[in-house]
Amino acid sequence: MSAKLVNIGFGNIVTASRIVTVVSPESAPIKRLIQESRDKGILVDATYGRRTRSVIVTDCNIIILAAVQPETIANRLQSKDDITNE
């Protein structure tokens, strides 16, 4: 079984099959989602102190903050050169 892994910046990797959506953090509903996730303890901050540029929502309701653009993550999801686990 092969699981595609996607680099979300600074050496952080997410399993592609677990990603539901990748969105920009600018809208009010996404800002509320981030705050609620932080309060519930289901937020993973993978920005290393940088500005949050994308929010990744997983199928297990974990919210991941990344410092790369959503377009970059989408391109990496479509790329065949990304990391795979054989």
Rank of each mutant, 00 (worst) to 15 (best):
A46L: 05
V22E: 08
E26H: 05
S17N: 09
T72M: 12
T15M: 13
T84I: 08
L33F: 03
N61D: 07
D82C: 13
A16S: 10
I34V: 12
L43G: 00
T84P: 04
C60D: 12
S2P: 15
I8H: 02
I56A: 09
T72G: 11
T47Y: 05
G11R: 05
Y48T: 05
R32P: 00
S79A: 13
S2V: 15
I64W: 01
G41Q: 12
I73A: 10
V55M: 04
A16T: 07
Q78M: 15
V22H: 11
D39K: 05
S37E: 04
I62G: 03
A28G: 04
S24I: 07
R38D: 09
K31F: 01
Q78Y: 15
V57P: 03
R53A: 04
S2H: 14
P29N: 06
I63T: 11
G41N: 07
I34H: 00
R51T: 09
E86R: 11
D45E: 07
I42R: 13
L65N: 10
A67W: 03
N85F: 15
V6T: 08
S17Y: 11
K40W: 03
V57H: 12
N75G: 13
I64F: 01
V68G: 00
I30T: 02
V23R: 00
T21P: 00
D82M: 13
A28L: 06
V55Y: 00
P70Q: 09
